[in-house]
Design a protein around this nucleic acid. Structure first.
Length: 493
RNA sequence: GCCAAGGUGGCAGAGUCCGGCCUAACGCAGCGGCCUGCAGAGCCGCCUACCGCCGGUUCAAAUCCGGCCCUUGGCUCCA
């Protein structure tokens, strides 16, 4: 049983066959650090995180690189806003920090490196020079453009026909270009104040002068074009030829198409074997995006629902399918997560109880574990179908509940197998955190809740149900859900 | 206009690559029952889908082919 993936380049689902299984190269097209991230970005990260985790789980050696675009006119547009700072670098640093925080909150596995554009200017210039030397690019007015008519395969990723493409890039550049579809590799000078002001908040004074960083180049002072960065960074940190390129589907054209053109024209090798595009997150029928203002930030989502629910949500639709964000869809994710978590806790409690015996063996429970592992694996191997994988865990959850409900003497080993399945697959592959304490005071809070529950138990034993219910209601108001079971009361924060 | 991806129950979402186990998975919501002092959780059961429309191929199609309609994304910064 092997892994199949949907490759945008071929338009088909194909068997995954990396060049070197010990060294699978994965590049995730990161984001421009001009604002806090939103759930749409988080979806891409979590999906690519799960892909990388699954590849590792299958035994591949994976090297994962994810970039930050820290040179961009939208960043320049925010200079002087609040305490963001007065320079492009300062604003970028602020949001890089914010994004790293979001990634940590979402429990993403760390990438090997998070390169930034600003520290790769020499490599970018080198690629542009190579392209000029090879005749794929030309200089005009201190800028350098890629000549799409020179690159035979242009359009192979997105299906675009060069002659049908209206124009790429700013209107002011059009006159300099030989062909409307040509795109900038290097842009002369600093950011035009007019371009930056388009993205600038109305509360701020508009920029008057050209702004943003510039670097010296063979063509004069200027800034790198957007598309070359990814070519430079993936080549620098991985190789001319990589196995997997992950990105949002809104970047297929022109960004990824242009990456292919630059990289392949420069190196002569195929740039990426598998192009995996994560479809977009939508709200009310349109994509969630910063420019539309209809977004939910990662920070707000994590704060309101917690990392596990957010991850469960973001993994609830396969990456090849667009996903809807709504009250209903996020609360479904919450239910799914809590169902898995409760079963995990139930199995843990049962295994820890005095009714768990080394010599008891239960075929149904053990079979359920085996079934769950198989179903999980075949779902993940089928194009990283994480929702299907979660469904496998939910089936195991039902089996655990049924078992613990029915039986008096527990199969210790069977329960541990179930627990390990939740931990290895739910935790290790899907990135959920089981039994995570919510903060440093959790222990004290837990002790206090136990104390209140003991008092409530005495009231219940004495038949004082009104008093018992009052205690339960007041705990609920504090965010503690109390549940009575045969073995006493339990609580969840 | 051009390019790309989709349209499956009230919602959400697998299945479509390799046609038959799909009288359509898992889940949410809803309904009934068990359990419970009550509630919750859990368990059992029910509910609603002829799989966008029309034609074709086939013994057999949600799955293959053709046409049409609709939605979303891209062609301008965008994960």
């Amino acid at each position: 049983m092997s892994l199949y993936v949907s490759n945008t380049l071929s338009g088909e689902r194909e068997p995954f066959e990396p060049d070197d299984p010990e060294n699978v190269l994965v590049y995730t097209c990161g984001l421009t650090v001009s604002d806090d991230s939103h759930l749409g970005h988080a979806r891409l990260w979590v999906q690519s995180d799960v892909m990388v985790r699954w590849l590792s789980h299958l035994g591949y050696g994976v090297r994962h690189v994810q970039n930050f675009t820290d040179v961009n006119e939208k960043i320049v547009a925010r200079t002087g806003e609040g305490d963001l700072g007065d320079t492009e670098q300062a604003v970028a640093r602020h949001y890089v920090e914010s994004v790293i925080e979001d990634m940590r909150d979402l429990n993403l596995d760390r990438a090997e490196v998070y390169p930034r554009v600003s520290e790769h200017i020499p490599e970018i210039i080198e690629i542009v020079e190579t392209l000029v030397e090879k005749g794929y690019a030309y200089e005009a007015g201190g800028s350098v453009y890629f000549d799409v008519t020179e690159f035979e395969d242009y359009g192979k990723l997105s299906g675009q026909d060069v002659e049908e493409i209206e124009s790429q890039g700013a209107e002011s550049d059009r006159a300099e270009k030989r062909h409307p579809a040509d795109f900038a590799l290097w842009k002369a000078g600093a950011v035009d104040p007019g371009d930056a002001n388009e993205h600038r908040s109305d509360d701020l004074p508009p920029l008057e002068e050209p702004a943003g960083q510039t670097w010296a180049s063979p063509w004069g002072e200027g800034r790198p074009g957007w598309h070359v960065e990814c070519s430079a960074m993936s080549t620098t940190h991985l190789d001319d030829s990589i196995d997997v390129h992950v990105g949002g589907q809104d970047l297929v054209f022109p960004h990824h198409e242009n990456e292919i053109a630059q990289s392949e024209a420069a190196s002569g090798d195929q740039f990426a074997t598998y192009w995996l595009h994560v479809r977009l997150l939508e709200t009310a029928g349109e994509k969630m995006s910063s420019s539309l203002g209809n977004y939910f930030t990662t920070k707000n989502a994590v704060e309101e629902f917690g990392p596990n629910v957010v991850r469960m949500f973001l993994v609830s639709t396969s990456y090849t399918q667009r996903q809807t964000y709504s009250e209903a869809t996020i609360s479904e994710a919450q239910e799914r997560w809590e169902r898995v978590e409760r079963a995990y806790e139930r199995a843990t409690d049962a295994a820890d109880s005095v009714d768990a015996y080394a010599k008891v063996e239960d075929d149904d429970l053990r079979a359920a574990v085996v079934d769950a592992r198989e179903a999980f694996t075949s779902s993940m191997n089928d194009d990283f179908n994480a929702r299907g994988a979660v469904s496998a865990l939910l089936e195991l959850a039902s089996a655990v509940h049924r078992y613990v409900d029915e039986v008096e003497a527990y199969d210790y080993r069977g329960l541990v197998d179930a627990i390990e399945t939740f931990e290895d697959l739910g935790g290790g592959v899907l990135g959920f955190q089981f039994g995570a304490a919510d903060g440093g005071d959790a222990t004290l809070a837990g002790d206090l809740v136990e104390l209140v529950l003991n008092i409530r138990e005495e009231e219940r034993a004495a038949g004082n149900y009104e008093r018992a219910d009052e205690l339960r209601d007041r705990l609920e108001a504090l965010g503690v859900t109390v549940e009575d079971t045969d073995d006493g009361s339990t609580y969840r924060l």
